[in-house]
């Protein structure tokens, strides 16, 4: 195989890079041949396509998507520097950037932006997440498709939305939504759990009126069809 098509495993599945030069019809059929030759490997795969400068029209992308779907391969996102390709991608309702990065850009959260696929212990599977090492003040919002860990306070007026868990090493006074994509198993933990509003998946609750109780670490989770808080300890 030549190097016009390369494969790489990423957190979101497979990253398929197709060189920006050469005829698209030829390259796309070469990609299909490649998939067919290793169909068991590709079956059920989630693919992100990286196209560089290549300009693709909507129907070209749609054809590719159909061809991939026939092979039980899902097209997740198309990364491209070309405005036309990006527009085509959006018209098909696909992501134009890798999710975990796209939603966190331009929020002034430096630690977040430098979040790349973490080269942790290769034995460890690893999950996506965001570490915020400062207090989230009023008006600040953090979105993540993974977990969110805050080392600092989350003040009233700040908001965290995560598909995974939310852990706050400090006072949690703002609004948080864990398991935002519907995961009822998500939890919210804080050294002092006093959120304005706490949501897990489709459940919503507010903090009970507890004036001046000594703060203690708590974990909120969904149990018996409602959100409950329990002491968070070993």
């Amino acid at each position: 195989m030549d190097d016009s098509i390369t494969l790489k495993g990423i957190k979101q599945g497979l990253l398929v890079t197709v060189k920006p030069d050469g005829r698209w019809t030829e390259l796309s059929s070469r990609l299909m041949t490649l998939i067919d030759s290793q169909s068991s490997f590709f079956r059920g795969a989630q693919v992100t396509l990286s196209l560089g400068e290549r300009e693709l029209r909507r129907h070209e992308l749609a054809n590719l998507q159909t061809a991939l779907a026939k092979r039980d391969v899902t097209l997740l996102a198309v990364l491209s520097n070309s405005a036309m390709t990006q527009a085509s991608t959006r018209k098909l309702g696909l992501e134009t950037q890798l999710e975990a990065l796209a939603h966190l850009e331009g929020k002034g959260l430096e630690p977040v932006q430098s979040l790349r696929p973490p080269p942790i212990d290769p034995e460890e599977h690893g999950t996506t997440g965001v570490l915020v090492k400062r207090t989230l003040r009023n008006g600040r919002t953090v979105h993540s498709h993974g977990h969110v860990v805050v080392v600092g306070d989350v003040n009233a007026g700040a908001m965290i939305v995560a598909d995974g868990d939310i852990i706050v090493w400090g006072h949690l006074r703002g609004t948080v939504h864990a398991g935002a994509n519907g995961d009822e198993g998500a939890v919210v933990c804080a050294l002092h759990l006093a959120p304005t509003q706490l949501r897990i998946a489709g459940y919503i609750t507010i903090s009970p009126d507890e004036r001046r109780r000594k703060p203690r670490p708590e974990m909120a989770l969904v149990r018996n069809g409602r959100i409950e808080a329990e002491s968070w300890e070993l």
Binding site: G108, L136, R137, N138, G139, R140, N155, A156, G157
Partner: peptide, 13 residues
Amino acid sequence: VRDADRIIGLIEA
């Protein structure tokens, strides 16, 4: 205090 918090956040940013 809420508004002060917001302002401080903006200055820190």
